[in-house]
Amino acid sequence: MVGNVSRASIISDRRITGLSPDVIAELVTDVGPLWHERHQARLASRARKRAVGAGAKHRLVFVDRLLATLVHLRHGVTHDVLACWFGVDRSTITRAIGEVRPLLAQRGCTVTAGVRLRTLAEVVEYLGVTGETGIVDGTEIRVRRPAVGRKDRDKFISGKSKQNAVKAMVLTDGDGRVLFCSPTTPGSCADITHARQLGLVRLLSDGPAVEILADAGYQGLGAQTGGRVVTPPHRKFKKNAPDWYEELHERQRKAHSSRRIRVEHGIAHLKNWRALARHLGHREHTSDTVQAIAGLLSQQQAADLISTQQS
């Protein structure tokens, strides 16, 4: 395992994990007990010849497991390299990341200190209470192509990028802070279909009066949600449009684009975490990966906002 000096260097340098020391300390306090509880439950769930807690101790303590997971998510470092860095076997790193990543994914997105949004319903309720405008968009993450002969091999091919990808729906506030990131779906799924599958139409139709800005990929949701989803204006003239209409349509389109550009900034911050630039692991882990990174990013954004307000 790494020494105290190396561990302190990792924690103190935000370039390594993407998180400040205060945020990492909060993660240790919040996630540590959950990991320990799951570990003890797993030990007690099978027949044993020795008491729980007997035998060899972990060479990789929880703090190091958390740091290894953060470095992997932030920079896409391979398990072999992390194993050399932390002085353990590669399988230990793989097991550690597999244990910590789901715990990070379940935490949801942090809005303020102690307030987290874990579901889309909670996000819609939060926007209704605060009166803020939400911005929604889909983002794609490249993945490995399924093996030849595997069922539904072509469902991961994105019609937009013509690559094998999975898709997630991201919802931010008007300042681009991440409020929600959905589980992933195969890249062949359209943005509007994914939103319907997540229940966005039902939540907006039956919920509070909120405003959600979206791009042209969500056109049609406005009519289904009573105007709560606002998309770019439809083009009424496909050919031989009058000059005055071209000017009006372009002005309306730019005005809408300038309002929803913040979600693109939020997605860009997510993609700064190399694990989302291209996912090279199992596709089954992409949902946990993207939701874990969204939760970590939102917690750091909330911490930076509090720090700015206090200074």
Rank of each mutant, 00 (worst) to 15 (best):
123 V>N: 14
233 P>R: 04
272 N>R: 15
112 T>I: 02
296 L>A: 13
173 D>E: 09
63 V>A: 03
113 A>M: 00
89 D>F: 00
22 D>K: 13
305 L>K: 14
265 H>A: 07
191 D>V: 05
235 R>Q: 14
271 K>N: 06
155 K>Q: 11
188 S>W: 05
260 R>K: 03
152 D>S: 10
129 V>C: 07
100 V>D: 03
59 R>P: 00
224 Q>I: 08
294 A>L: 11
32 G>Q: 00
157 I>W: 12
143 V>H: 05
139 T>I: 12
21 P>D: 03
149 G>D: 12
54 A>R: 10
51 A>S: 14
131 G>A: 02
307 S>H: 13
282 H>I: 07
20 S>R: 08
144 R>M: 02
3 G>H: 03
152 D>I: 06
12 S>A: 15
154 D>C: 08
281 G>L: 12
188 S>T: 06
175 D>N: 04
230 V>E: 08
153 R>C: 01
169 M>Y: 08
36 H>K: 03
245 Y>D: 05
282 H>V: 12
222 G>I: 01
143 V>W: 04
53 G>A: 02
94 T>S: 01
192 I>D: 06
73 L>T: 11
175 D>R: 11
237 F>D: 02
215 D>E: 10
61 V>M: 01
306 I>K: 15
68 A>Q: 03
28 V>I: 10
147 A>M: 03
101 R>V: 00
292 A>H: 05
127 L>P: 06
190 A>K: 14
291 Q>V: 09
115 V>I: 11
283 R>M: 08
82 L>Y: 01
149 G>T: 06
71 V>R: 15
104 L>K: 07
258 S>T: 00
169 M>P: 05
107 R>W: 05
263 V>K: 13
295 G>M: 10
32 G>W: 04
194 H>P: 06
284 E>F: 09
263 V>F: 11
171 L>F: 14
218 Y>R: 09
186 P>W: 10
291 Q>L: 11
276 L>H: 06
238 K>N: 10
255 A>F: 03
58 H>E: 08
254 K>N: 12
235 R>H: 11
244 W>F: 09
44 A>V: 07
101 R>D: 00
81 V>P: 01
67 L>G: 01
37 E>S: 06
253 R>P: 00
76 G>D: 13
55 G>T: 07
305 L>I: 07
177 R>W: 12
185 T>Q: 15
280 L>F: 14
35 W>H: 13
55 G>Y: 09
191 D>L: 02
283 R>K: 01
81 V>T: 02
271 K>M: 09
121 A>M: 06
278 R>G: 06
56 A>C: 01
82 L>G: 02
285 H>S: 08
269 H>K: 15
253 R>Y: 00
255 A>E: 02
94 T>C: 04
253 R>W: 03
98 G>C: 00
86 F>L: 01
117 L>K: 09
74 R>V: 12
48 R>S: 10
137 D>R: 12
